[in-house]
């Protein structure tokens, strides 16, 4: 445990130093990457239990909206508090639907999660008091009572994001390596056997789903603050799909790889969006193909040789 948190702290310090040296646009991109990486980390947890959700947009959006509304309408400005509220919102929303959703597997699970996220999208798009399809602006957060000026706001948020991501990745790593984490992997491999050994696959799924919801809510709150704006597209299926893409790119062996994968996706998107605005998805697609062909278990498999024996620790 000490080793995992030590590595997480080291990773966080390196990431913060990198952020301090990086140009402003890159800091913003890295914050967004952390937000998507957190959502993808939740999907990685689900993948370790043998499932993929195509509807994490729901919990991502719920976290963004609730924390955003508290900031915009009720004057809550503390970044860390808003992030925690986002995480709790996402986890609570996931807990609410989990008794239904944890009964399903495979494509049914994926489609049902997606359907639910589109319901939220539809509701928010019609909810004109909170902006309808336009959404609303989220005020700049404060950090321990200090409200930074525009020149340092992005960096301050980035530092908080790194700390949250490091803690989240470390906790996920510990969970993956724990007994319940091993049982989740076993459920991915052989549900029948897990049930006949006396464990509930339903409970495993529910647990991973609520965890994924919490991480998605955290990511949503973070991205809302980073962008200064939230809208119903947070819950749109393409948003969810993009995060699945990141999770696949990162692979399920590592709790750190998703952040790297998210950064790569964000960078590819930024650059190809600038130079090839009509075809940036093409580059992303080619990139994903290469990863699937040469690293079928994702980037994480580069340093975590075996899923269950993975020793990597969190950023």
């Amino acid at each position: 445990m000490i080793r995992v948190f030590g590595l997480a702290a080291l990773g966080a310090v390196l990431a913060i130093v990198a952020g301090a040296l990086a140009p402003a646009w890159l800091v913003f991109t890295m914050t967004k990457a952390i937000a998507f990486g957190l959502v993808a980390l939740g999907i990685v947890g689900l993948m370790r239990g043998g499932l993929v959700s195509f509807g994490q947009g729901l919990y991502y959006c719920a976290g963004a909206y609730v924390s955003g509304l508290l900031a915009a309408r009720f004057g809550v400005s503390e970044a860390a508090l808003l992030l925690l509220i986002g995480a709790v919102t996402g986890a609570a929303a996931a807990a609410l639907v989990s008794p239904l959703i944890a009964r399903y597997r495979g494509i049914f699970f994926a489609m049902l999660t997606m359907a639910l996220s589109m319901v939220l999208y539809g509701v928010l798009a019609k909810a004109t008091p909170i902006g309808g399809t336009d959404g609303f602006n989220v005020p700049r957060p404060s950090f321990g009572g200090w409200t930074p000026g525009p020149e340092s706001a992005d960096l301050a948020l980035y530092v908080v994001a790194v700390v949250f991501a490091a803690v989240a990745a470390a906790l996920c790593r510990l969970y993956y390596d724990s007994g319940p984490g091993l049982v989740a992997l076993a459920a991915r491999e052989n549900e029948l056997r897990v049930e006949y050994l006396g464990a509930s696959v339903f409970t495993v799924t529910q647990r991973n789903f609520i965890l994924a919801g919490g991480l998605a809510g955290l990511g949503g709150a973070l991205n809302g603050m980073a962008l200064g704006h939230v809208d119903p597209f947070f819950s749109y299926w393409t948003t969810s799909g993009e995060v699945v893409f990141i999770a696949i790119l990162g692979g399920y062996a590592s709790a750190v790889a998703v952040f790297g994968a998210a950064l790569i996706v964000e960078l590819v998107r930024s650059f190809s969006g600038q130079y090839f605005p009509e075809s940036w998805q093409l580059f992303l697609g080619i990139f994903l193909l290469l990863v699937i062909i040469f690293l079928p278990r994702g980037f994480g498999s580069l340093w975590a040789k075996r899923a269950t024996g993975a020793k990597g620790a969190g950023e």
Binding site: S178, G179, L182
Partner: peptide, 23 residues
């Protein structure tokens, strides 16, 4: 080894220890 660890983990029962290594 890991297959047996799955069994012994489930057999141990009780409250799940999320932060205690399986190995």
């Amino acid at each position: 080894t890991e297959n047996i660890l799955v069994s012994t983990e489930i057999a141990a029962g009780g409250a799940p220890h999320f932060f205690r290594p399986a190995r």
